[in-house]
Design a protein around this nucleic acid. Structure first.
Lengths: 194, 194
DNA sequence: AATAGATGTTAAACTAGGTTAACATCATTT
DNA sequence: AAATGATGTTAACCTAGTTTAACATCTATT
Protein backbone atom coordinates (compact mmCIF):
# COMPACT_ATOMS: atom_id res chain seq x y z
CA UNK A 1 0.00 0.00 0.00
CA UNK A 2 1.19 3.53 -0.55
CA UNK A 3 0.27 7.00 0.56
CA UNK A 4 0.70 8.74 -2.78
CA UNK A 5 -3.05 9.15 -3.45
CA UNK A 6 -3.53 10.80 -0.05
CA UNK A 7 -0.61 13.18 -0.55
CA UNK A 8 -1.85 14.07 -4.03
CA UNK A 9 -5.31 14.70 -2.62
CA UNK A 10 -4.02 16.91 0.21
CA UNK A 11 -1.86 18.87 -2.21
CA UNK A 12 -4.92 19.90 -4.17
CA UNK A 13 -5.92 22.06 -1.18
CA UNK A 14 -2.72 23.01 0.67
CA UNK A 15 1.02 22.55 0.15
CA UNK A 16 2.99 20.66 2.74
CA UNK A 17 6.74 21.10 3.23
CA UNK A 18 8.97 18.03 3.11
CA UNK A 19 9.20 17.95 6.88
CA UNK A 20 5.44 18.17 7.25
CA UNK A 21 4.95 15.43 4.68
CA UNK A 22 7.39 13.21 6.53
CA UNK A 23 5.67 13.86 9.85
CA UNK A 24 2.31 13.03 8.31
CA UNK A 25 3.64 9.84 6.74
CA UNK A 26 5.09 8.75 10.09
CA UNK A 27 1.57 8.74 11.55
CA UNK A 28 -0.03 6.73 8.80
CA UNK A 29 -1.68 3.43 9.65
CA UNK A 30 -2.79 1.17 6.78
CA UNK A 31 -5.78 -1.03 7.28
CA UNK A 32 -7.48 -3.66 5.13
CA UNK A 33 -11.08 -4.76 5.40
CA UNK A 34 -12.83 -7.58 3.59
CA UNK A 35 -16.11 -7.22 1.73
CA UNK A 36 -18.99 -7.07 4.24
CA UNK A 37 -16.78 -6.13 7.19
CA UNK A 38 -17.83 -3.15 9.27
CA UNK A 39 -15.52 -0.16 9.67
CA UNK A 40 -17.91 1.48 12.13
CA UNK A 41 -20.99 0.06 13.85
CA UNK A 42 -23.96 2.06 15.08
CA UNK A 43 -23.53 2.43 18.84
CA UNK A 44 -19.73 2.21 18.85
CA UNK A 45 -17.62 5.34 19.04
CA UNK A 46 -16.00 6.09 15.68
CA UNK A 47 -12.31 6.33 16.63
CA UNK A 48 -10.83 6.88 13.15
CA UNK A 49 -11.11 8.92 10.03
CA UNK A 50 -10.13 6.85 6.99
CA UNK A 51 -8.99 7.75 3.49
CA UNK A 52 -9.85 5.03 0.99
CA UNK A 53 -7.03 3.91 -1.30
CA UNK A 54 -9.03 1.08 -2.82
CA UNK A 55 -12.49 -0.39 -2.43
CA UNK A 56 -15.95 0.89 -1.70
CA UNK A 57 -18.09 1.41 1.41
CA UNK A 58 -21.63 2.36 2.33
CA UNK A 59 -22.68 4.45 5.31
CA UNK A 60 -26.21 3.59 6.40
CA UNK A 61 -28.78 3.84 9.10
CA UNK A 62 -31.32 1.28 10.29
CA UNK A 63 -34.64 2.97 11.04
CA UNK A 64 -37.28 2.08 13.63
CA UNK A 65 -38.90 -0.40 11.18
CA UNK A 66 -35.62 -2.19 10.55
CA UNK A 67 -35.20 -0.61 7.13
CA UNK A 68 -31.76 0.31 5.84
CA UNK A 69 -31.22 3.85 4.50
CA UNK A 70 -27.93 4.55 2.74
CA UNK A 71 -26.59 8.03 3.45
CA UNK A 72 -23.54 7.84 1.18
CA UNK A 73 -21.16 5.62 -0.69
CA UNK A 74 -17.40 6.19 -0.55
CA UNK A 75 -14.76 5.03 -3.00
CA UNK A 76 -11.09 5.75 -3.70
CA UNK A 77 -10.00 9.26 -2.66
CA UNK A 78 -12.96 9.74 -0.32
CA UNK A 79 -13.04 9.89 3.43
CA UNK A 80 -14.98 7.54 5.65
CA UNK A 81 -16.08 8.18 9.20
CA UNK A 82 -19.21 8.84 11.16
CA UNK A 83 -18.31 12.47 11.55
CA UNK A 84 -20.90 13.13 14.26
CA UNK A 85 -19.46 10.33 16.36
CA UNK A 86 -15.85 11.13 15.53
CA UNK A 87 -15.87 14.82 16.41
CA UNK A 88 -17.72 14.32 19.68
CA UNK A 89 -16.31 10.84 20.45
CA UNK A 90 -19.79 9.58 21.29
CA UNK A 91 -21.66 6.53 19.92
CA UNK A 92 -22.20 6.43 16.17
CA UNK A 93 -25.61 6.86 14.54
CA UNK A 94 -24.53 5.02 11.41
CA UNK A 95 -22.96 1.81 10.24
CA UNK A 96 -20.13 1.91 7.71
CA UNK A 97 -19.67 -1.38 5.89
CA UNK A 98 -17.44 -2.47 3.01
CA UNK A 99 -19.17 -3.28 -0.28
CA UNK A 100 -15.84 -4.48 -1.69
CA UNK A 101 -12.53 -5.45 -0.10
CA UNK A 102 -11.29 -2.05 1.02
CA UNK A 103 -7.89 -0.60 1.86
CA UNK A 104 -7.60 2.64 3.73
CA UNK A 105 -5.31 4.96 5.58
CA UNK A 106 -6.58 5.51 9.10
CA UNK A 107 -6.06 8.41 11.47
CA UNK A 108 -7.17 8.00 15.04
CA UNK A 109 -8.83 10.85 16.90
CA UNK A 110 -5.68 11.42 18.95
CA UNK A 111 -3.43 11.33 15.88
CA UNK A 112 -5.55 13.87 14.02
CA UNK A 113 -5.76 16.18 17.03
CA UNK A 114 -1.98 15.95 17.39
CA UNK A 115 -1.46 16.62 13.68
CA UNK A 116 -3.67 19.71 13.85
CA UNK A 117 -1.27 21.11 16.47
CA UNK A 118 1.89 20.07 14.65
CA UNK A 119 0.70 21.03 11.15
CA UNK A 120 -1.89 23.80 11.60
CA UNK A 121 -2.33 23.93 7.83
CA UNK A 122 -4.24 20.68 8.11
CA UNK A 123 -7.05 22.60 9.80
CA UNK A 124 -7.39 24.52 6.56
CA UNK A 125 -7.31 21.33 4.52
CA UNK A 126 -10.07 19.68 6.52
CA UNK A 127 -12.11 22.86 6.68
CA UNK A 128 -12.04 23.02 2.90
CA UNK A 129 -13.02 19.44 2.28
CA UNK A 130 -15.82 19.59 4.82
CA UNK A 131 -17.10 22.81 3.22
CA UNK A 132 -17.22 21.02 -0.12
CA UNK A 133 -18.99 18.13 1.43
CA UNK A 134 -21.64 20.44 2.96
CA UNK A 135 -22.35 21.89 -0.46
CA UNK A 136 -22.88 18.37 -1.82
CA UNK A 137 -25.27 17.48 1.00
CA UNK A 138 -27.27 20.68 0.49
CA UNK A 139 -27.62 19.86 -3.19
CA UNK A 140 -28.78 16.38 -2.33
CA UNK A 141 -31.45 17.72 0.02
CA UNK A 142 -32.73 20.00 -2.73
CA UNK A 143 -32.71 17.20 -5.28
CA UNK A 144 -34.60 14.91 -2.97
CA UNK A 145 -37.33 17.52 -2.69
CA UNK A 146 -37.54 18.89 -6.18
CA UNK A 147 -36.85 15.90 -8.38
CA UNK A 148 -38.85 12.74 -9.04
CA UNK A 149 -37.29 9.35 -8.33
CA UNK A 150 -36.54 8.88 -12.03
CA UNK A 151 -34.78 12.22 -12.23
CA UNK A 152 -32.78 11.48 -9.08
CA UNK A 153 -31.68 8.18 -10.57
CA UNK A 154 -30.50 9.90 -13.74
CA UNK A 155 -28.58 12.49 -11.70
CA UNK A 156 -26.98 9.68 -9.70
CA UNK A 157 -25.92 7.88 -12.89
CA UNK A 158 -24.44 11.08 -14.27
CA UNK A 159 -22.65 12.09 -11.06
CA UNK A 160 -21.29 8.63 -10.20
CA UNK A 161 -20.95 6.80 -13.53
CA UNK A 162 -18.14 4.56 -12.28
CA UNK A 163 -19.80 3.72 -8.96
CA UNK A 164 -23.03 2.32 -10.43
CA UNK A 165 -21.53 -0.91 -11.76
CA UNK A 166 -19.81 -1.65 -8.45
CA UNK A 167 -22.94 -1.52 -6.31
CA UNK A 168 -26.04 -3.75 -6.25
CA UNK A 169 -29.19 -2.00 -7.37
CA UNK A 170 -31.06 -2.47 -4.15
CA UNK A 171 -28.41 -0.33 -2.47
CA UNK A 172 -28.74 2.35 -5.13
CA UNK A 173 -32.49 2.31 -4.52
CA UNK A 174 -31.87 2.79 -0.80
CA UNK A 175 -29.50 5.70 -1.52
CA UNK A 176 -32.15 7.27 -3.77
CA UNK A 177 -34.80 6.83 -1.07
CA UNK A 178 -37.01 4.41 -3.04
CA UNK A 179 -37.72 0.67 -3.01
CA UNK A 180 -35.77 -1.72 -5.20
CA UNK A 181 -39.02 -2.67 -6.95
CA UNK A 182 -39.66 0.92 -7.95
CA UNK A 183 -36.09 1.39 -9.20
CA UNK A 184 -36.61 -1.72 -11.29
CA UNK A 185 -39.77 -0.15 -12.76
CA UNK A 186 -37.93 3.09 -13.49
CA UNK A 187 -35.17 1.21 -15.31
CA UNK A 188 -37.61 -0.68 -17.51
CA UNK A 189 -39.41 2.60 -18.29
CA UNK A 190 -36.09 4.17 -19.30
CA UNK A 191 -35.36 1.24 -21.63
CA UNK A 192 -38.79 1.60 -23.28
CA UNK A 193 -38.30 5.35 -23.73
CA UNK A 194 -35.16 4.96 -25.83
CA UNK B 1 -25.20 46.82 17.41
CA UNK B 2 -22.54 44.86 19.20
CA UNK B 3 -20.22 41.97 18.56
CA UNK B 4 -20.60 40.26 21.94
CA UNK B 5 -22.76 37.38 20.63
CA UNK B 6 -20.19 36.60 17.94
CA UNK B 7 -17.29 36.67 20.40
CA UNK B 8 -19.20 34.46 22.83
CA UNK B 9 -19.97 32.05 20.01
CA UNK B 10 -16.35 31.89 18.83
CA UNK B 11 -15.16 31.37 22.40
CA UNK B 12 -17.19 28.22 22.65
CA UNK B 13 -14.77 26.62 20.16
CA UNK B 14 -11.42 28.43 20.52
CA UNK B 15 -9.93 31.11 22.79
CA UNK B 16 -8.73 34.31 21.24
CA UNK B 17 -6.10 36.55 22.84
CA UNK B 18 -6.93 40.22 23.41
CA UNK B 19 -4.87 41.21 20.39
CA UNK B 20 -6.60 38.68 18.18
CA UNK B 21 -10.00 39.80 19.45
CA UNK B 22 -9.13 43.38 18.68
CA UNK B 23 -7.93 42.50 15.19
CA UNK B 24 -11.12 40.57 14.55
CA UNK B 25 -13.27 43.44 15.82
CA UNK B 26 -11.43 45.87 13.56
CA UNK B 27 -12.64 43.90 10.53
CA UNK B 28 -16.27 43.73 11.53
CA UNK B 29 -18.89 45.23 9.26
CA UNK B 30 -22.44 45.55 10.56
CA UNK B 31 -25.27 45.32 8.12
CA UNK B 32 -29.04 45.71 8.46
CA UNK B 33 -31.63 44.24 6.13
CA UNK B 34 -35.38 44.81 6.12
CA UNK B 35 -37.94 42.04 6.04
CA UNK B 36 -38.14 40.59 2.50
CA UNK B 37 -34.78 41.97 1.42
CA UNK B 38 -32.37 39.55 -0.22
CA UNK B 39 -28.94 38.93 1.30
CA UNK B 40 -27.94 36.71 -1.63
CA UNK B 41 -29.68 36.15 -4.95
CA UNK B 42 -29.43 33.03 -7.09
CA UNK B 43 -26.98 33.85 -9.89
CA UNK B 44 -24.99 36.47 -7.95
CA UNK B 45 -21.68 35.57 -6.35
CA UNK B 46 -22.03 35.34 -2.58
CA UNK B 47 -19.33 37.71 -1.37
CA UNK B 48 -19.94 37.53 2.39
CA UNK B 49 -20.42 35.17 5.26
CA UNK B 50 -22.78 36.66 7.82
CA UNK B 51 -23.36 36.02 11.52
CA UNK B 52 -26.89 36.92 12.54
CA UNK B 53 -27.23 39.07 15.66
CA UNK B 54 -30.99 39.53 15.27
CA UNK B 55 -33.66 38.44 12.83
CA UNK B 56 -34.40 35.42 10.70
CA UNK B 57 -33.64 34.33 7.13
CA UNK B 58 -34.53 31.56 4.73
CA UNK B 59 -32.24 30.00 2.17
CA UNK B 60 -34.20 28.59 -0.76
CA UNK B 61 -34.09 27.33 -4.27
CA UNK B 62 -36.56 27.81 -7.14
CA UNK B 63 -36.95 24.60 -9.12
CA UNK B 64 -37.70 24.11 -12.82
CA UNK B 65 -41.47 24.37 -12.14
CA UNK B 66 -41.10 27.67 -10.29
CA UNK B 67 -41.60 26.02 -6.92
CA UNK B 68 -39.72 27.28 -3.88
CA UNK B 69 -37.82 24.75 -1.73
CA UNK B 70 -36.43 25.98 1.59
CA UNK B 71 -33.07 24.44 2.43
CA UNK B 72 -32.66 26.07 5.85
CA UNK B 73 -33.72 28.82 8.18
CA UNK B 74 -31.17 30.84 10.14
CA UNK B 75 -31.71 32.89 13.29
CA UNK B 76 -29.56 34.58 15.94
CA UNK B 77 -26.14 32.95 16.39
CA UNK B 78 -26.28 31.16 13.04
CA UNK B 79 -24.27 31.81 9.92
CA UNK B 80 -25.74 32.76 6.57
CA UNK B 81 -24.11 32.35 3.19
CA UNK B 82 -24.44 30.26 0.09
CA UNK B 83 -21.41 28.21 1.01
CA UNK B 84 -21.01 26.69 -2.45
CA UNK B 85 -20.92 30.13 -4.01
CA UNK B 86 -18.80 31.69 -1.27
CA UNK B 87 -15.99 29.14 -1.22
CA UNK B 88 -15.65 29.03 -4.99
CA UNK B 89 -16.68 32.67 -5.64
CA UNK B 90 -19.00 31.52 -8.42
CA UNK B 91 -22.73 32.28 -8.91
CA UNK B 92 -25.06 31.19 -6.11
CA UNK B 93 -27.55 28.34 -6.47
CA UNK B 94 -29.75 29.70 -3.71
CA UNK B 95 -31.54 32.82 -2.62
CA UNK B 96 -31.19 34.02 0.97
CA UNK B 97 -34.01 36.32 2.00
CA UNK B 98 -34.96 37.94 5.31
CA UNK B 99 -38.16 36.73 6.96
CA UNK B 100 -37.80 39.45 9.61
CA UNK B 101 -35.75 42.63 9.80
CA UNK B 102 -32.28 41.19 10.25
CA UNK B 103 -28.99 42.49 11.62
CA UNK B 104 -25.77 40.72 10.92
CA UNK B 105 -22.02 40.90 11.07
CA UNK B 106 -20.54 40.43 7.64
CA UNK B 107 -17.15 39.13 6.58
CA UNK B 108 -16.18 39.48 2.96
CA UNK B 109 -14.31 36.70 1.19
CA UNK B 110 -11.10 38.76 1.26
CA UNK B 111 -11.50 39.64 4.94
CA UNK B 112 -12.01 36.02 5.95
CA UNK B 113 -9.07 34.84 3.86
CA UNK B 114 -6.92 37.55 5.46
CA UNK B 115 -8.12 36.64 8.94
CA UNK B 116 -7.26 32.97 8.37
CA UNK B 117 -3.66 34.07 7.76
CA UNK B 118 -3.52 36.55 10.63
CA UNK B 119 -5.34 34.35 13.16
CA UNK B 120 -4.73 30.74 12.11
CA UNK B 121 -6.84 29.55 15.04
CA UNK B 122 -9.87 30.72 13.07
CA UNK B 123 -9.28 27.84 10.66
CA UNK B 124 -9.89 25.55 13.60
CA UNK B 125 -13.00 27.47 14.59
CA UNK B 126 -14.52 27.26 11.13
CA UNK B 127 -13.44 23.66 10.69
CA UNK B 128 -15.34 22.80 13.84
CA UNK B 129 -18.50 24.61 12.92
CA UNK B 130 -18.60 23.17 9.40
CA UNK B 131 -18.09 19.70 10.85
CA UNK B 132 -21.09 20.26 13.08
CA UNK B 133 -23.08 21.55 10.17
CA UNK B 134 -22.38 18.44 8.08
CA UNK B 135 -23.65 16.23 10.87
CA UNK B 136 -26.90 18.21 10.92
CA UNK B 137 -27.33 17.90 7.15
CA UNK B 138 -26.72 14.15 7.25
CA UNK B 139 -29.35 13.77 9.93
CA UNK B 140 -31.78 15.74 7.87
CA UNK B 141 -31.24 13.52 4.83
CA UNK B 142 -31.88 10.45 6.94
CA UNK B 143 -35.01 11.97 8.46
CA UNK B 144 -36.34 12.91 5.06
CA UNK B 145 -36.04 9.28 3.99
CA UNK B 146 -37.05 7.40 7.07
CA UNK B 147 -39.78 9.56 8.59
CA UNK B 148 -43.29 10.41 7.40
CA UNK B 149 -44.26 14.04 6.89
CA UNK B 150 -46.06 14.07 10.25
CA UNK B 151 -43.00 12.72 12.05
CA UNK B 152 -40.75 15.23 10.32
CA UNK B 153 -43.05 18.03 11.42
CA UNK B 154 -42.91 16.83 15.03
CA UNK B 155 -39.11 16.64 14.90
CA UNK B 156 -39.01 20.16 13.48
CA UNK B 157 -41.23 21.46 16.27
CA UNK B 158 -39.06 19.77 18.87
CA UNK B 159 -35.74 20.90 17.37
CA UNK B 160 -36.78 24.49 16.63
CA UNK B 161 -39.50 25.34 19.15
CA UNK B 162 -38.71 29.05 19.09
CA UNK B 163 -38.46 29.30 15.32
CA UNK B 164 -41.92 27.93 14.56
CA UNK B 165 -43.88 30.97 15.74
CA UNK B 166 -41.71 33.34 13.74
CA UNK B 167 -42.26 31.69 10.38
CA UNK B 168 -45.41 31.35 8.25
CA UNK B 169 -46.63 27.78 7.91
CA UNK B 170 -46.32 27.61 4.18
CA UNK B 171 -42.57 28.13 4.62
CA UNK B 172 -42.39 25.37 7.21
CA UNK B 173 -44.21 23.12 4.76
CA UNK B 174 -41.63 23.97 2.10
CA UNK B 175 -38.78 23.22 4.55
CA UNK B 176 -40.40 19.87 5.36
CA UNK B 177 -40.80 19.07 1.67
CA UNK B 178 -44.61 18.98 1.65
CA UNK B 179 -47.41 21.26 0.47
CA UNK B 180 -49.02 23.80 2.78
CA UNK B 181 -52.35 22.00 2.34
CA UNK B 182 -50.87 18.75 3.57
CA UNK B 183 -49.24 20.45 6.56
CA UNK B 184 -52.62 21.91 7.37
CA UNK B 185 -54.10 18.39 7.25
CA UNK B 186 -51.34 17.06 9.52
CA UNK B 187 -51.98 19.81 12.06
CA UNK B 188 -55.70 19.12 12.20
CA UNK B 189 -54.97 15.38 12.60
CA UNK B 190 -52.63 16.17 15.49
CA UNK B 191 -55.34 18.25 17.19
CA UNK B 192 -57.85 15.41 16.84
CA UNK B 193 -55.37 12.88 18.26
CA UNK B 194 -54.97 14.73 21.55
C1' DA C 1 -24.73 -30.98 -10.93
C1' DA C 2 -27.42 -29.48 -7.17
C1' DT C 3 -28.46 -26.46 -3.72
C1' DA C 4 -28.69 -22.16 -1.26
C1' DG C 5 -28.32 -17.38 -0.93
C1' DA C 6 -28.16 -13.07 -2.90
C1' DT C 7 -29.96 -10.13 -6.38
C1' DG C 8 -33.40 -8.52 -9.75
C1' DT C 9 -38.20 -8.33 -12.11
C1' DT C 10 -43.19 -8.04 -12.69
C1' DA C 11 -47.78 -7.01 -11.48
C1' DA C 12 -51.94 -6.08 -8.52
C1' DA C 13 -53.69 -3.66 -4.67
C1' DC C 14 -52.84 0.11 -1.68
C1' DT C 15 -51.54 4.77 0.62
C1' DA C 16 -49.05 9.02 1.58
C1' DG C 17 -49.00 13.05 -0.15
C1' DG C 18 -50.11 16.29 -4.30
C1' DT C 19 -53.41 19.15 -7.03
C1' DT C 20 -57.10 22.03 -7.64
C1' DA C 21 -60.31 25.04 -6.23
C1' DA C 22 -63.29 27.39 -3.11
C1' DC C 23 -63.52 29.62 1.03
C1' DA C 24 -61.87 31.77 5.75
C1' DT C 25 -59.09 34.76 8.40
C1' DC C 26 -56.04 38.35 9.38
C1' DA C 27 -53.20 42.54 8.71
C1' DT C 28 -52.19 46.67 6.05
C1' DT C 29 -53.21 50.36 3.28
C1' DT C 30 -56.30 53.74 1.49
C1' DA D 1 -64.81 50.89 6.73
C1' DA D 2 -63.50 48.82 2.54
C1' DA D 3 -60.40 46.72 -0.16
C1' DT D 4 -56.27 44.25 -1.08
C1' DG D 5 -52.87 40.85 -0.30
C1' DA D 6 -50.92 37.46 2.41
C1' DT D 7 -51.80 33.40 5.00
C1' DG D 8 -54.41 29.26 6.35
C1' DT D 9 -58.20 25.53 5.87
C1' DT D 10 -61.13 21.98 3.85
C1' DA D 11 -62.47 18.54 0.68
C1' DA D 12 -62.68 15.82 -3.71
C1' DC D 13 -59.97 13.69 -6.83
C1' DC D 14 -55.43 12.14 -8.55
C1' DT D 15 -50.58 9.98 -8.81
C1' DA D 16 -45.93 8.69 -7.48
C1' DG D 17 -44.18 5.45 -5.01
C1' DT D 18 -45.01 1.29 -1.50
C1' DT D 19 -46.32 -3.34 -0.27
C1' DT D 20 -46.79 -8.00 -1.03
C1' DA D 21 -45.92 -11.94 -3.24
C1' DA D 22 -44.49 -14.88 -6.85
C1' DC D 23 -41.04 -15.79 -9.94
C1' DA D 24 -36.31 -15.30 -12.49
C1' DT D 25 -31.44 -15.09 -12.65
C1' DC D 26 -26.94 -15.33 -11.15
C1' DT D 27 -23.00 -16.88 -8.14
C1' DA D 28 -20.71 -19.53 -4.87
C1' DT D 29 -20.35 -23.67 -2.24
C1' DT D 30 -20.75 -28.51 -1.55
Amino acid sequence: MNAAPLLAYINKYISLTEDETELLLSKIVYRKYLKNQYIVQQGDVCRHEGFITSGCTKMFYIDANGQEHIVMFSIEDWWVSDMGSFITQTPADYHIQCIENTELIQFSYETIEGLYLEIPKLERFFRKIVERSIVAFQKRIVRNFSLSAKERYLVFKKNYPNIEQRIPQYMIASYLGITKEFLSKIKSQLILEQ
